[in-house]
C-alpha cells in the first residue's frame, strides 16, 4: 500500500465486505437495543410498551448481576491463568525430542475436538460425581470422604472443565511459537552464562510474548460467553454461585420469558466485553506491534 492511488483502490475493494459485516452486526444489535427499552414478556404478547431505562435499572440493581459479574471475571481469569501456565509447561515438554512425539501431540490436542456439552457431561458424571465418579472412587480408595465438586465448589469445577478444553489450544499456539525460536539465540545465551531459568525468562518468554497475547485475546472472547458447560453441570447454581453474565441473560429472558430484561442484560454484556477488550489491548496490545 505504498501510493495514494493503491490505498484508495484498496479501500474501494474492501468496502463491500466491510458494509456486509457492518450490516450483519448492526441489525441484531439495534434490535436488541430496541427490545431492551420495551416491557416485553412472552407470557403477555401484544402488551409491549416503551419503558425507558427500567429494564437496565432492574438488571443492574439485581444482586444476581454482581454475583454473575464476579463469576464471569473469575471464570475468564482462572481459565486464562491455568491454560497459559499449563500450556507453556506442556509446550516446553512437547518441544523436547522423545519417542512417540507425534502421537503424544495428537493426544494433547484431542480435548479441543470434544463438544463442550459432551465434555462437561463426562466431567460431571464420570469424574466429579460424588457417588460413581472417578474422583470419588480415588478418594475412597485412600480413605477420604468423597467431595461433591459441583455442589461445594461449582465455579472452580467449571473453571477446571473449561480450562481442560482450552489447554490444547494454548499449548498448540505456544508450541509453535517455541519452535520458531532461533536455536542460535539459545546457544548464544548459554555461552553468555544463562542457566535454564535465565534462558527461559530472558530469551524464551519474551519470544513467546506475542503468542501469549494472541492466546489471551482469543480465549477471552470465547470465555466471556461460556454457557453450555454451566447449563449441563450446575444450571448456574447453587443459588447464583456459578452463574455468569451469559447464563444470567439466558435465565432472565428464557426462564422468566422477559425478552426486554434479557435484551438489557445482553447490551450490558456487550459493554462489559468491550471494557475488557480495551483493558486487554492497553495492557498487552503493544506485544502485537512490529
Amino acid at each position: 500500500m505504498a501510493t495514494a492511488h493503491s490505498r484508495v483502490a484498496a479501500r474501494f475493494m474492501i468496502s463491500p465486505a466491510v458494509l456486509l459485516l457492518l450490516g450483519w452486526m448492526i441489525v441484531p444489535l439495534s434490535m436488541t437495543i430496541y427490545f431492551s427499552f420495551l416491557s416485553y414478556n412472552l407470557l403477555m404478547p401484544g402488551m409491549e410498551e416503551f419503558i425507558g431505562f427500567t429494564n437496565y435499572r432492574f438488571f443492574l440493581t439485581d444482586p444476581a448481576f454482581f454475583a454473575a459479574l464476579a463469576n464471569t471475571l473469575l471464570l475468564v481469569g482462572g481459565v486464562l491463568v491455568i491454560t497459559i501456565v499449563g500450556g507453556t509447561a506442556l509446550a516446553l515438554l512437547l518441544d523436547q525430542p522423545f519417542w512417540g512425539q507425534g502421537i503424544v501431540r495428537i493426544l494433547v490436542i484431542a480435548p479441543f475436538f470434544v463438544m463442550p456439552t459432551v465434555s462437561a457431561l463426562v466431567w460431571k458424571n464420570m469424574f466429579m460425581n460424588p457417588v460413581n465418579g472417578l474422583f470419588a472412587h480415588l478418594a475412597k480408595a485412600i480413605g477420604l470422604e468423597p467431595f461433591d465438586f459441583l455442589a461445594h465448589a461449582p465455579l472452580a469445577s467449571i473453571i477446571l472443565i473449561v480450562a481442560w478444553q482450552w489447554l490444547p489450544f494454548a499449548t498448540l499456539i505456544l508450541l509453535t511459537a517455541l519452535q520458531s525460536l532461533d536455536q542460535e539465540q539459545l546457544e548464544a545465551s548459554e555461552m553468555d552464562g544463562a542457566n535454564f531459568g535465565n534462558r527461559f525468562i530472558y530469551i524464551v518468554l519474551p519470544h513467546m510474548a506475542r503468542a501469549i497475547t494472541v492466546v489471551v485475546l482469543i480465549q477471552t472472547i470465547f470465555l466471556l460467553s461460556v454457557f453450555a458447560e454451566i447449563l449441563v453441570t450446575t444450571n448456574g447454581g447453587p443459588g447464583y454461585a456459578s452463574t455468569n453474565i451469559t447464563y444470567l441473560v439466558y435465565a432472565q429472558s428464557l426462564l422468566q420469558f422477559d425478552v426486554g430484561g434479557g435484551s438489557a442484560g445482553g447490551i450490558v454484556a456487550v459493554i462489559l466485553a468491550n471494557i475488557v477488550a480495551v483493558f486487554l489491548m492497553r495492557m498487552i496490545g503493544k506485544n502485537l506491534e512490529a
Binding site: E184, A188, Y202, P206
Partner: peptide
C-alpha cells in the same frame, strides 16, 4: 555467530 544471534527484544 554467523546469524549474530542478537536478542531481538533487548
Amino acid at each position: 555467530f554467523q546469524s549474530y544471534a542478537l536478542y531481538p527484544h533487548m
